[in-house]
Computed example of a mutant assay.
Amino acid sequence: MFRRRKGQDTPSADEVLEDGLDAELESDETDEADEPAAPVVDRSGGPFDTSEVPDDGLTRLDLGGLRVAGAEGMEIRLEVDEATQNVMAVTIVSGDSAMQLTAFAAPRTEGIWDDVRRDIRNNLAGNGTVDEVDGPLGPELRATLSLQGPDGKQVSQPVRFVGVDGPRWFLRGLFTGRGARDAAAAAPLEAVLRATVVVRGDEAMAPGDALPLNVPTALPDGMSQTGGADAEGDEDDAAPDRRTPLPPPVRGPEITEIR
């Protein structure tokens, strides 16, 4: 399922990290033309650069800077900034787990995940606990945030940050819900992350700048849209006559879903 929302629907943890890619990363911006290539990172199992797309038969949704493979029973949401209508991130929901993907530009000579992990730890200081562990994708951060719930009471929210450095790009995954701690719940989302293709492009970008994403105007074969959703997204998913091609994006509170 693909859903476009007007307004932010990102995990609350991400609001704490608005400054996670700070000015120190921007200071790495140099003339890349004369720099040697970055050390090779083992990404044989993904995620992939656009020059490495495998012949795996997967259907991927083209979102501009990211191409994301859908899976049965999952929902793909685009997080749209209300003020600019720019797509900021993509969130994949699987049951009671979610993973937000954001891709950034990086220097040609080195990755930025080490710096980003440090910045995340600094930003979370005083707002919860955070530990660095070795995960299936390498070093990652697992944090427990202290946040204010809808009723005004403080609640604890587990989150998990994974990162992968690629050629001139960096891909960050933010896991929330049960998948932030439960390996079995996280596995389907990790498979989506590994199957993701990052499209860096050739344009000059400062390290830490988010790669541009867009709402697709057409769907690949194998994906369909369920129209007629109300403000809460409730609808009869079994009705075949309500499945239509994805229309061009429009402004307003409408929600478009694809199952």
Rank of each mutant, 00 (worst) to 15 (best):
F2S: 03
R5M: 08
D9L: 13
T10F: 04
T10D: 14
S12P: 04
S12N: 05
A13R: 07
V16F: 11
D19R: 13
L21R: 13
E26A: 15
D28T: 06
D28F: 13
E29G: 02
E29Y: 14
A37V: 13
R43V: 13
S44I: 12
G45A: 14
G45P: 00
F48P: 08
F48T: 09
D49H: 10
S51Y: 01
V53M: 09
V53A: 10
D55T: 08
L58S: 07
L58N: 09
D62W: 09
G64W: 07
G65F: 02
V68S: 05
G70D: 11
A71D: 12
G73T: 06
E75Q: 12
E75C: 04
V80R: 15
E82P: 02
A83L: 10
A83W: 10
N86Q: 14
T91K: 14
T91H: 07
I92K: 03
S94D: 12
S97W: 03
A98Y: 00
L101M: 13
A103H: 05
A106Y: 11
R108S: 04
T109W: 05
I112Y: 05
I120F: 15
N123R: 15
L124G: 00
L124T: 06
N127L: 14
G128R: 03
D131E: 14
V133T: 06
V133H: 10
G138V: 04
T144H: 03
T144E: 15
S146L: 06
Q148M: 11
D151C: 06
D151T: 09
K153M: 07
Q157E: 15
P158E: 04
P158N: 11
V159L: 06
F161Y: 14
D165K: 02
R172W: 03
G173R: 02
G173T: 08
R178T: 06
R181F: 00
D182L: 02
A183D: 14
A186W: 08
L193W: 10
A195W: 05
T196W: 08
E203D: 13
A206W: 01
A210Y: 06
L211N: 09
V215M: 07
D221L: 02
G222P: 04
S224K: 04
G227Q: 12
R242N: 05
R243S: 08
R243K: 11
R243H: 13
R243G: 02
L246D: 03
P248L: 03
P249Y: 07
V250W: 00
G252S: 06
G252V: 01
I255P: 00
T256L: 10
E257I: 13
R259Y: 09
